[in-house]
Amino acid sequence: MIYAFYIFAFIAIASAAGILFARRLFHAALMLLVCFLGVAGIYAVSFAEWVAVTQILVYAGGVVVIIIFGIMLTARITGRPTAVANSRWFSGTLLGLGAMGFLITLFVRGSFGNGVMPASDAKFTMVNRFGIELMTDYMLPFEGAGLLLLITLVGAAVIAATRNKNSIS
């Protein structure tokens, strides 16, 4: 299992670095898709099956498609692929490496204990437990998330809509 973890971690980090060095925005979006799938694999090997499935459905299936829509809609009318210019290489690299050094030092010095294998129960799998908790203890956040999604749907449609100057408001 630890080898699977390393393979998925390598995929995620390599494709994330690929986004950083990608010339074209579309390639960056596709590499983000690979990165999301790698992170979903990380979730799958750490007993978070439902989070892995949600990651693939929402991120790889939803967010990446929205981003590709955005790339295509903001492309030049000439049809050339959108190239991304870079700026502030020095300060960006300094900030990134500084944050990485700080976080890794913090994480390696602290002791967080080891992971524990979840007790395998024949009657309730992890996904069963997740569903039961979602419908009992986490009922209010669940409904709140539904309300948030509705507000987002309406808000995004209103913001992105084209308005004629002649039409009323």
Partner: peptide, 28 residues
């Protein structure tokens, strides 16, 4: 898998994301 492995992975991904936010000159 030790938890430190996850933490180092997430720190690396976070820093790469931070670098992308600072360096790239496109809103998307």
């Amino acid at each position: 898998i030790p938890i430190e492995n996850y933490l180092v992975l997430s720190a690396t991904l976070f820093s790469i994301g931070l670098m992308i936010v600072v360096i790239k000159r496109n809103a998307i």
